[in-house]
């Protein structure tokens, strides 16, 4: 399980805006092992979606490196690039805007198959699409319908079928359940877990719902304002959070149990999330952190391994 499928080294992604440079992702490093799920959590605007998109080459990088199986994602060309697009797929957040309303479900799913010439005949293509639809829990006859005929959960299943069509190894799931109702969320999460077991997939699971991320992930990366605050396996993140931001985030998650809720101490954050345009120097979190000292103003904390596999970016953690 130690083979790294994706390695991100000092990745930076800046956007130019009228007011200055928006540092969406600023010096982020992590890796994902083959067959595991890395959860990426953080509040809106922390750069989690930008990280996901830059990792698979949808967005260009500003600086740094993303290695997929040892090859730099952003300098792939020709056959390598084509092979990469077959191995890596993405499931988007909004199942309404990520599917073309003018295409039939069959064509949406078969588009990737055609691009990679995976089916020799129309018959094979039809059989493959029907197999995919059954895999994700839809009916084979749904292939001839249009997207507007489906509910949110069903659309997300179509999105998953489309990603699976080209038999990928690595899938970025960008908030795949945020737009869905509670009872449907569990359906989609169970489907993703089942597919991972059956096909040996690797996931990067981006979400803001920490309890769902903990449930699905082997390891979790917590992001704050374009940087990674903490990475560790999902159980120790809950039992032993080291970064003050992670502690505050965990204490804000509601637990559906009145007695636990009553006893729970909540760590309140001071102030508001600063703007990613010209973010504070030093530690990004210092303005809201009650442990902040002089060093937090001057130096930006490096992501250090404090226990085996437990990385944290904070000066105060010994």
């Amino acid at each position: 399980m130690s083979e790294k499928i994706l390695e991100v080294k000092n990745l930076k992604k800046y956007f130019k805006s009228g007011k200055g440079t928006l540092k969406a992702v600023d010096d982020v490093s992590f890796f994902i092992n083959k067959g595991e799920t890395l959860g990426v959590v953080g509040e809106s605007g922390c750069g989690k979606t930008t990280t996901g998109r830059t990792c698979i080459g949808i967005l260009d990088k500003t600086e740094g490196q993303v290695l997929y199986k040892g090859k730099d994602v952003h300098s792939l060309k020709g056959a390598d690039k084509k092979a990469f697009t077959k191995e890596v797929q993405i499931i988007f957040q909004d199942p309404y805007s990520s599917l073309d309303p003018k295409m039939r479900v069959h064509d949406i799913i078969a588009e990737g198959l055609r691009a990679h010439k995976m089916c020799a005949t129309k018959e094979q293509e039809r059989a493959k699409v029907q197999e995919l639809l059954t895999t994700v829990g839809l009916n084979a006859e749904h292939a001839t319908r249009y997207v507007h005929e489906f509910s949110g959960g069903q659309r997300q299943r179509i999105g998953i079928a489309r990603a699976l069509a080209v038999e990928p190894e690595f899938i970025v799931c960008d908030e795949p359940i945020s737009a869905l109702d509670v009872s449907i969320q569990a359906q989609i999460v169970n489907l993703l877990i089942r597919l991972q077991k059956e096909k040996g997939l690797t996931y990067m699971f981006i979400a803001h719902d920490l309890s769902m991320v903990k449930h699905i992930s082997d390891r979790v990366a917590v992001m704050y304002l374009g940087t990674v605050a903490e990475i560790t396996d999902s159980n120790s993140l809950y039992r032993n959070p080291l970064h003050p931001y992670t502690q505050a985030l965990l204490s804000a998650i509601p637990i559906p149990d009145p007695e636990v809720e009553e006893k729970k101490e909540r760590i309140k954050l001071i102030g508001e999330l600063p703007s990613p345009i010209d973010p504070p120097a030093g530690c990004r979190f210092k303005g809201r952190c009650k442990y902040a000292t002089d060093i937090c103003d001057k130096e930006r904390p490096e992501l250090r391994e404090v226990e085996t596999g437990h990385y944290v970016a904070c000066h105060m953690v010994k």
Partner: peptide, 20 residues
Amino acid sequence: RAVPRLDADENQELESIEGT
């Protein structure tokens, strides 16, 4: 049972409510 609990130790199985 359809929502995972943050304070659950072992990964519990999520119960999905089939259908819509």
